[in-house]
Amino acid sequence: MSDERPTPSPPADPFAAWREWVTQSEHQMNKVFNDMMGTEQFARASGGWIEAMTMFQQTMNEGAQRYFQAVNLPTRNDLGDLAERLTAVEERLLRIEGLLAQAIGRKGDANPAPRPARTRRPPSERKATAPDEGSASE
């Protein structure tokens, strides 16, 4: 015997409504901002802002560089040059290390990762062959 009563709707949850409002507001606000930021005026303003910011950054960098030179301290460029030379030495060492490893017949590092068998088959093939093989490897 079927029950004629309609399925009761879930009780109103004021907090769920609030969460829905947050989501809707987020979408609406994003759209409003995106419409505004998609205009040529905004692109021009943001280009001007970036121009000013990069100019400021460049002035600061040059000022800081002059200051460090005046007080006889290494500048960022000096450290960069040093890092570059260190990197070149490091790379040369790695190449020598690799050649040495090859020369003594050992590839890779001292603790090579485990080498599993490279024989795995896709699940579709394993399912198809499983009854004959007994148990599928997993």
Binding site: A117, T119, R120
Partner: peptide, 9 residues
């Protein structure tokens, strides 16, 4: 590092 004994080729 491998976590199984058998891997794809």
């Amino acid at each position: 590092r491998a976590r199984v004994d058998e891997v794809y080729r």
